[in-house]
Nucleic acid binder design. Structure first.
Lengths: 341, 341
DNA sequence: TCTCGTCCATAAAGGGTTTCATTGGTCGTT
DNA sequence: AACGACCAATGAAACCCTTTATGGACGAGA
């Protein structure tokens, strides 16, 4: 069942059928109806490959993400897919892992598949050594490249992100203003956004004229999902003599581990240990007490990112950077406002 | 840069170039090398659309899942994508939500896109009223349809699943054998696998000649992610006079809420309340104590499912049903083996 | 009559795959 | 040595199904 069959049955040429398919205005209403009727009757759908060949597009966007089973990335992928589909695009998902070589391979896989655009989910796609980012610049030569939560200045690369610096600063300030100065910053990523969070934490101390100690900025190198490992890590810090009355974590899972650590060591939350997480994920509500966490506007970011992409593909000029403000969601692991210890 | 350019530069016909591209054996090694050299030098990659048109396939599989931000479904999608990519296939992701109409729409979206196969992730794709499942049968007419954790008997439909009945039975038995008879079964899905779990729970009571009470089988209708809502739900049950010393939940999130409920009510785990979850997700390790949970072999299932699909696409005859056995992972929310209350 | 729009058809891309025919060489037979 | 059978390697051309540029037919208005 091809466009030829339809054209014959409707008594018109294939060009007219094509015009009907593509909503071209130059078709008399009667003709249009006739063609549509035949299509309907035959259950005809145009061949997607032939269409792709003709239009050089199958309305497909490539989504790159390191690990779509990660709570945060999964949510991002979900919202992106939703928005893309509503905009008439399909989502080709590619999980790359965290190694540069794999990221490059996955990217060229998508480009070979002739996607109309690429979305990179997570700031881990920006490499430390800028020379390594050539693969992004190369891709941007072919299609628009959208970065979620990363910042990269290059033509045809569009960034949509949360101001993690400010959000982290605000979260840290809220702890300081509650009278806590020994705040452990616990993080597990040195990506672009990871760095910004750390910088935000640091800036809060500078702003309050408090001393900043390297020992209070701890990087956890283990698996994202190893809650016990994180607990032990915290335990090790305490045993090594580090004393802290608050933990600010770069991810909810780290904060969750901190809650568990407090539980295991009979520390009262928030009186003896305040905890702030990041991402405001479902883990926040799984904790007892519930986690205070930074909401980094993932849903808004995804919506805006896809909107920018679709507009760009439509030939519109769009801003290359959009920044959202995070916000602190106060729950049970921090003292309520106006509360003095 | 087309196959014509390459053929000219290499001094062969396009047929030969195509043969080289597709690994056809009937090409002299020197000729092959010559062509490959030219391709390399020109950085040539064949046009995916043209290829799709010629082969009627772009090696793409459609993945349908209700909500890829759901912890469990996200993991499934992740493993499926990994295995597909390793097998040389691309993944077109489509999140459908839980409404039949949307599932149908998403499915025809994928079929119009001419995917080589469809994977439905989650037993919620099987409808209660079998007439509604016509959309699956229709799809199976066009491409192989793979169901994850669902059972559906129809030509060209392949099912890979966990024996949830047995796993749930085993989990329930382990509680009974620890001396607990008032076991609340808490579930939030009436899908195929949800029903099997419930039946497994029931059968354990029958097997032990214990009375089975409707009141101990509670369906939670609220949001998957509303931990507080679940807590309140449990609280309501207790207040209404229901007494239970164990909770067996059809999902870890429900079990997590039960842990929280115990915490809020100062119930000792597992002495006063034993809890078993399902899926053995990361939530299990976020709890304190850690959740005993049923591991339903998701990773194995995904691997097998994709293997079956790829073999089927390769023209091999494959079994239409593969069943894995779940296993109970004992952790802190149940009494250790040989422990008598 | 000439011009201009509207509607539609013809045919040419678009870039591969694949069938079929052809060539040239190897091998076995007589 | 001559011949035919057979096979590996290759090329020409058909085919896959659209989109779209070009231009023709036709009717209306000047």
């Amino acid at each position: 069942m091809t466009i030829y069959d339809i054209s014959k049955m409707a008594g018109v040429s294939i060009a007219t059928v094509s015009r009907v398919l593509n909503g071209n205005a130059n078709v008399r209403p009667e003709t249009r109806k006739k063609v549509l009727d035949v299509m309907e009757r035959c259950g005809y759908t145009p061949n997607a490959f032939a269409r792709g060949l003709g239009l050089n597009s199958m309305n497909t966007i490539g989504i790159l993400c390191a690990d779509s089973s990660d709570l945060y990335l999964a949510k991002a992928v979900y919202h992106i897919e939703q928005n893309l589909r509503l905009g008439g695009y399909r989502s080709l998902l590619c999980c790359t892992g965290y190694e540069l070589e794999n990221k490059k391979n996955s990217l060229s896989l998508l480009l070979n598949q002739k996607v109309d655009g690429v979305i990179m989910v997570g700031s881990n796609f920006i490499e430390e050594d800028d020379a390594d980012n050539q693969y992004i610049r190369d891709a941007a030569q072919q299609v628009p490249v959208m970065l979620l939560n990363a910042d990269f200045d290059y033509p045809n690369v569009y960034c949509t992100l949360c101001d993690d610096f400010k959000a982290a600063q605000e979260a840290t300030l809220s702890l300081i203003e509650a009278g806590i100065a020994d705040i452990l910053y616990l993080y597990n990523s040195r990506s672009y956004s990871g760095k910004n969070k750390l910088a935000g934490y640091q800036s809060a101390f500078l702003q309050k004229d408090l001393p900043l100690s390297r020992e209070y900025q701890q990087y956890y190198a283990g698996s994202h999902e190893d809650v016990d490992g994180i607990c032990h890590f915290l335990d090790g810090l305490r045993r090594s003599g580090l004393s802290f009355h608050a933990v600010f974590a770069s991810e909810d899972i780290l904060a969750t581990a901190a809650v568990k650590y407090a539980r295991l060591n009979d520390l009262k939350i928030p009186e003896e240990l305040s905890i702030i997480g990041y991402n405001n994920s479902i883990l926040a509500s799984c904790c007892e007490p519930e986690l205070t966490s930074v909401d980094n506007r993932l849903e808004d970011i995804c919506r805006q990112l896809v909107k920018t992409l679709i507009m760009t593909l439509g030939g519109n000029q769009m801003p290359q950077k959009t920044i959202f403000s995070g916000r602190l969601i106060r729950r049970g692991t921090t003292a309520p406002l106006n509360h003095e210890l």
